[in-house]
Design a protein around this nucleic acid. Sequence first.
DNA 1: CTCGATTGTCTAGCGGTGCTAGAATCGAGG
DNA 2: CCTCGATTCTAGCACCGCTAGACAATCGAG
Lengths: 192, 192
Amino acid sequence: MSVQERKERERASRERLIVATARELAEQQGWDAVTTRRLAERIEYSQPVLYSHFRGKREIIGAVALEGATEMAAALRAAASDADGRRARVAALAHAYLEFAERNPAVYDALFQLDGGLAFAQEDTPEPLKDAFAALLETLGEVAGEGVHPALFTELFWSALHGLATLTRAGRLLPEGAEQRLDLLVERLAVL
Amino acid sequence: MSVQERKERERASRERLIVATARELAEQQGWDAVTTRRLAERIEYSQPVLYSHFRGKREIIGAVALEGATEMAAALRAAASDADGRRARVAALAHAYLEFAERNPAVYDALFQLDGGLAFAQEDTPEPLKDAFAALLETLGEVAGEGVHPALFTELFWSALHGLATLTRAGRLLPEGAEQRLDLLVERLAVL
DNA sequence: CTCGATTGTCTAGCGGTGCTAGAATCGAGG
DNA sequence: CCTCGATTCTAGCACCGCTAGACAATCGAG
């Protein structure tokens, strides 16, 4: 049975290669440049191989998104745990969120902008996505204020962060005010 | 010279037809369905005619976006002027914004989600876009609070609305909480 | 050790996209 | 009515996501 195990290992490793290459290509040249032909060429296999791992391009985007969600959750938790006090924790969390979006634009797009075929806010939502939301909830739930449902507050705060992230990156907001907008968001929205 | 004038009128009218048809098709079947072939067929001309009016598909999206921006500005001003008192005005504005996004998803996408080749937050930003932001600023500037720059406050509030609009439509937020999230946003962010 | 079956991969191609060169057609002015 | 410039169309380019079917490599049985 060792032969079969080796094959499965190789197959799994090739799948990781596909996802990593897609992500790399997307970060370098944007998702438009991630075509099945270019991706196949980079991993040094033919196009149909991609389809033996994923149903189509959507699923590849989805795989990058899941990978990114795990990293994002970790980054958010790390930022929150490095800060002392509720105010500092919320500020650090918000800052970490926007920094992740800025440093990994392709991953952020895969998560929230493109169609990766992922379910959200439902029962069959993949674990990494739920966990990323949970990472937000852990810190933001503390500052929802009395009588306000923590999850609902988190959704609102998250929406604001998402809006800042996307509008900033699309050049819709002047970059100069970024820090002030973030301060104001934390100050006003959170009950400290 | 009347012949030439007639031709110019006809040309302008055909351009309006292109934009209106693109918008209609996008609202009906999504922007993916708006291909140059389908669009050409609907206006009963061949593809190259599109390119005698617009540089390419991007510019057509941009034209829909500008049309939408004008309408949005009007809708926001109408909602604000119908309400009495600052709190009600801000709530009405926010509600009108989200309603516009929900009822005109294709236009909203053209404005903020797709690349219509439009400049933002710059000197050469088209007038309708500046005006839509101005419509937000007129109402939101009043509730920025002391020592907070009205434009910066408006950018933040707008970001939150944009986040709510996009995440809701992408199925990332549960629709049930929409009203509560909106109330909370107005209550917390605005200084009433 | 050979041979058939199974598995894996590739070549080639389908119908679609945005966009454009050059042919064909139209219509206004002489 | 005819000419000639402006307008519109036909046909085609290179690329897209995706897949059928040919081919090669590997495995297990005799």
